[in-house]
Design a protein around this nucleic acid. Structure first.
Lengths: 154, 154
DNA sequence: TTTCGTGCAAACCATTTGCAGCAGC
DNA sequence: GCTGCTGCAAATGGTTTGCACGAAA
């Protein structure tokens, strides 16, 4: 799939919703599109990437753009209970899910159709419209299990 | 079940782990035990409850106690992506799950064995030790669907 | 009597906001 | 040209921390 076409589609959508397409928004969206599958960035992460590329985009704009792109469904907001959010491209109708190690904070992604099905079934039973389904397993990963001297994530 | 016995059990456990049983910790734990099933409190919520009861417990202690009781598994930390955490008693081996309305921030609880089973199965496949399983459906609830003029939660 | 827990205030960190200037459309 | 977007710096909100005192074990 050509990235440019996809980006341009998004921008047409943004424009049709009365939002403006600015260089800042283009660059930020492109960074998420270039991201490997299963990767995600915090606002601070994204800001550092932008700095490294010498794009002069302020932290405030970084936050504002993340919020807007999430609100309009282009990004998915992830919450790993670390005190800050993470964001990833919201590409598919089948959201993947996460295992978070409480010691090293690393995440592992996985997909599971059953989980999504159950989510939609329950939503229907309760009469709500699904926006996102997030399944998280907080756990201790193998690397960390060995090392019992580690302190628990505060 | 007698609450006093249960509380005393917890306290014996705390003591056996080298933690001290203070009036502040007793009162906070009691508040969670008196909470209706499916209810949860943020740190600020808890602090307000304590104020209303004229328990003179500082906000700092409130936070410290929540953290300790969670670390030791007596409370479950819930994250609804609202910018602050919620806590509930961690009573059973079968965690229940939540639907969160993105407009009104209300939550609905539900239990589903299948979800927990899938969680444990995946954890086993990946070789991690489960600490908690959280399944969240972000959605728009029926009350809010009617009212399309509502602004989205920022 | 030795830690550990508490209260207070200050510090911290992630995020938001007011405002003036700038840039899409 | 209107309106929304940006950068900056200051404000905010939730949470943590340093310190001196007080209390559990």
């Amino acid at each position: 799939m050509s990235k440019d076409t996809t980006v341009e589609n998004v921008f047409q959508n943004l424009r049709s919703k009365g939002l403006r397409v600015t260089p800042q928004r283009e660059k930020i969206l492109q960074i998420f599109m270039d991201l490997q599958d299963g990767n995600h960035l915090s606002a601070e992460d994204l800001f550092k990437v932008l700095e490294k590329k010498n794009e002069n985009i302020s932290l405030a704009t970084t936050y504002r753009t993340l919020k807007i792109l999430s609100q309009f469904g282009y990004l998915r907001e992830l919450d790993f209970a670390e005190g800050h959010k993470h964001y990833e491209l919201n590409k598919d109708k089948r959201p993947h899910h996460h295992i978070i190690c409480l010691n090293c904070n690393k995440t592992m992604e996985f997909e599971d159709d059953l989980i999504n099905q159950v989510g939609y079934r329950i939503a229907e039973e309760k009469g709500v419209d699904v926006v996102d389904i997030q399944f998280k397993i907080y756990a201790i990963c193998p690397n960390e299990k060995d090392d019992e001297t580690k302190t628990h994530r505060s």
